[in-house]
């Protein structure tokens, strides 16, 4: 089970971390089925609530069948955000996630996030054709996967990778 939220009243995400989550990052979500077999899917863009306690990842349905099934069944969630340019990586975990329809501005937000991520890849030397093909699902039907992160980890490669991060007062 994902452990209880930190005793602190502060949200896990400070403003800088929120800015990072909203940047040109790759977003991958994981869960598992009843047998413990992991499921995996990509999201394109996310929203963070005003109080920074809820994160909503925008997940194209066509490429996320197993993951969405597992989340609907009530399995916990882990989400990794990684910026290719800096390798900076954060992982959030929550004991459950709630699936819902996209909000009115979400499709546009997904496309913009896909384009920003593609631009980041192109700047790093990946071909435009590859980069745009990779983010193509950002233009497809999607669901909003909402969760309240209870654990936060620094996963930037290096000796401190895996370190649990506490809320910053």
């Amino acid at each position: 089970m994902v452990t209880a939220p930190s005793s602190s009243d502060c949200p896990l995400l400070d403003q800088a971390r929120v800015v990072f989550l909203l940047g040109p990052v790759s977003i991958s979500l994981a869960s598992h089925d009843a047998a413990g077999v992991p499921s995996l899917a990509r999201a394109f863009g996310c929203r963070v609530s005003e109080d920074r306690r809820e994160v909503v990842a925008l997940v194209p349905t066509r490429t996320a069948e197993s993951l969405l099934r597992d989340l609907v069944a009530g399995a916990p969630i882990a989400v990794v955000f990684s910026r290719p340019k800096t390798h900076e990586t954060l992982q959030l975990k929550a004991p459950a996630a709630r699936l819902g329809p996209l909000g009115p501005t979400d499709p546009q937000h997904m496309r913009a996030s896909g384009n920003a991520f593609a631009a980041e890849l192109i700047a790093l030397g990946y071909s435009a054709a590859f980069s745009h093909a990779l983010v193509a699902p950002s233009k497809e039907d999607a669901v909003a996967v909402a969760f309240f992160p209870t654990l936060l980890f620094d996963q930037t490669p290096g000796p401190r990778a895996g370190r649990r991060l506490e809320p910053l007062p």
Partner: peptide, 8 residues
């Protein structure tokens, strides 16, 4: 304990 983990 059933907690998923995802990493690059």
């Amino acid at each position: 304990d059933g907690t998923p983990n995802v990493a690059k």
